[in-house]
């Protein structure tokens, strides 16, 4: 994809979005350019170096994470986003095992090596828009696995108790190899 063709504007449509996978595959083509990226907010907002940061993931798991029962489709594709202070409160849900994070659309500058932040790779957002709100993820119990684990624990516990009973009998002498 031509980097110039992907230069986006605030509140960009689907066609103006740039995927992080494309950016990471050819970072020199995108370095220092203004882009619009979309992805899931992860973890929490971290305050550091006088800025507010959020991790943004743009990978198949933004649609359905493994925690929601989605298929394994490779490793996360993530970037650190420096948020404008006034927009930080827009994000309410942050992705983790129990939570689907807000899907946010961020317009700003991609820095493969950011001199302002000690050489880190980051994305300086000039605007943030919440595309869809996150939610709590429910995890249905895997009944067969739960039953199997209880049975295995019971078996191991019973055998250990029998072993202890046998070897602690007075006068018992173990035969060995």
């Amino acid at each position: 994809m031509d980097a110039a063709a992907t230069v986006a504007h605030a509140g960009g449509s689907e066609s103006s979005l740039t995927s992080l996978a494309d950016v990471f595959a050819d970072p020199k083509a995108y370095d220092g350019r203004t882009l619009t990226i979309r992805g899931e907010a992860i973890g929490e907002i971290v305050r550091a170096q006088g800025e507010l940061w959020v991790q943004l993931n743009d990978d198949p798991y933004t649609r359905k994470s493994i925690a929601e029962g989605g298929a394994a489709q490779g490793q996360n594709v993530s970037i650190s986003v420096v948020l404008p202070r006034q927009d930080a409160n827009l994000i309410e849900y942050f992705g983790d095992f129990h939570t689907k994070g807000d899907i946010i659309e961020v317009t700003g500058r991609f820095n493969a090596i950011c001199e302002e932040h000690g050489g880190e790779t980051d994305f300086h957002a000039s605007s943030v828009r919440v595309v869809s709100r996150g939610y709590r993820i429910s995890h249905p119990l895997d009944v067969p696995m739960a039953v199997a684990s209880i049975l295995a624990l019971l078996l191991a516990g019973t055998l250990a108790a029998v072993r202890r009973h046998v070897i602690s009998r007075p006068g018992f002498k173990r035969k060995g190899w």
């Binding site: 925690a67 996360n76 095992f97």
Partner: peptide, 10 residues
């Protein structure tokens, strides 16, 4: 080789 590390349980 873990996948979707960011949604992994604690």
């Amino acid at each position: 080789l873990i996948q979707d590390l960011d949604h992994a349980p604690y």
